[in-house]
């Protein structure tokens, strides 16, 4: 028996771009991350044909999860048609044979930057969030080794302290996106820069969420039906962005998270941030019925 018979034939590319050992490592790390919800797992972030900081962490997670039957949706701040979202989606489909979609309901994997779709995700779907900075303690403890010890000790006093001081100084909590949240009552994670509006969607969600930071080489997870609780004081309620009363100027939907477009006159108009939701509403209005699934927010109120 020669070595040649034991090894695989040479191939120009591997399925799903990453080589088998890279995917094996990522799978192991994802399983670990699921086993300890919210706990950051280091991984050997590989090179992908994209610069670090542009969603390489999310891309590697997606490339590991994908199979030829997958249906991929990629969004960048809610939109499917941004250059980055479109390129990532096309790349994934080209190296895996998976099909592409803009529709949250038909996707099996949703890779996202900075948003969670408005339609409720199901148990058979996976949300992959791109994370620029995975360490919620970075602001209070620049030393990563000490920050890891603090996670191990569940020592979140300093994190709470910064929230306390924001209220003392400004009368309210200033943290907007990336709101630190306690996962499963044990580890605090940063939910990636999603707005506060989206954080409640992760709490007891039916779907699995993988959060992956390619530049920082860490990933963590929120398994289905797991508690995700933003750090708040019992007598200072958690407030989401006040978009409940805004209406999208193009689709007419209201009660969802909006993008603000400042106008010349000084005012602003709003467009729904989950762009495919807006498209579906426009299609329906123009006589091509397009199913909008159940949404986490109804009439601007969170109600899942």
């Amino acid at each position: 028996m020669s070595l040649a018979t034991l090894t695989k034939d040479w191939a120009a590319t591997s399925y799903g771009f990453l080589d088998a050992s890279a995917k094996r490592e990522l799978r192991r790390k994802m399983l670990k991350a699921i086993a300890v919800p919210g706990c950051q797992m280091p991984y050997a972030s590989r090179e992908v044909p994209m610069a670090r900081g542009w969603g390489t962490g999310g891309l590697q997670a997606t490339l590991t999860l994908v199979n030829p039957n997958s249906v991929i949706k990629v969004i960048d701040q809610g939109a499917d048609d941004g250059v980055n979202a479109a390129s990532i989606r096309r790349f994934i489909s080209r190296v895996s044979g998976a099909s592409e979609t803009w529709d949250t309901l038909s996707a099996t994997i949703v890779q996202s930057r900075h948003r969670v779709p408005e339609e409720i995700m199901r148990e058979d779907q996976v949300l992959v969030l791109q994370v620029p900075n995975p360490e919620p303690l970075r602001g209070v403890e620049p030393n990563i080794s000490i920050a890891r010890q603090m996670h191990a000790d569940a020592d979140y006093g300093k994190l709470w302290l910064t929230l306390y001081e924001q209220i003392v100084r400004k009368g309210r909590i200033m943290q907007g996106a990336s709101y630190p949240s306690m996962v499963n009552g044990r580890h605090v994670m940063t939910p990636s820069p999603i707005p506060r509006w989206d954080v409640p969607k992760l709490n007891m969600a039916r779907h699995l969420t993988i959060l992956s930071a390619g530049r920082e080489k860490r990933l963590y997870a929120v398994p289905p039906y797991t508690r995700v609780e933003p750090l708040v004081f019992s007598d200072r309620p958690y407030l989401v962005e006040d978009h409940a009363d805004l209406t999208c100027r193009r689709s007419g939907v209201s009660g969802f998270f909006m993008n603000e477009l400042p106008q010349d006159g000084g005012g602003s108009v709003f467009e729904v941030s989950d762009s495919n939701l807006g498209i579906k509403a426009i299609d329906t209005a123009q006589g091509t019925p397009s199913e909008i699934g159940e949404t986490w927010y109804r009439n601007g109120e969170f109600s899942a």
Binding site: D155, G157, Y164, E165, F233, S234, D235
Partner: peptide, 27 residues
């Protein structure tokens, strides 16, 4: 002491570690 945090915050941190979660009580 945490020199870059407020004095009241330094005291509050103790209470936070012990699990106090009401802002008014902390204050």
């Amino acid at each position: 002491l945490l020199m870059r945090h407020s004095s009241s915050g330094n005291v509050a941190e103790r209470l936070l570690i012990a699990g106090e979660r009401s802002f008014d009580v902390l204050r």
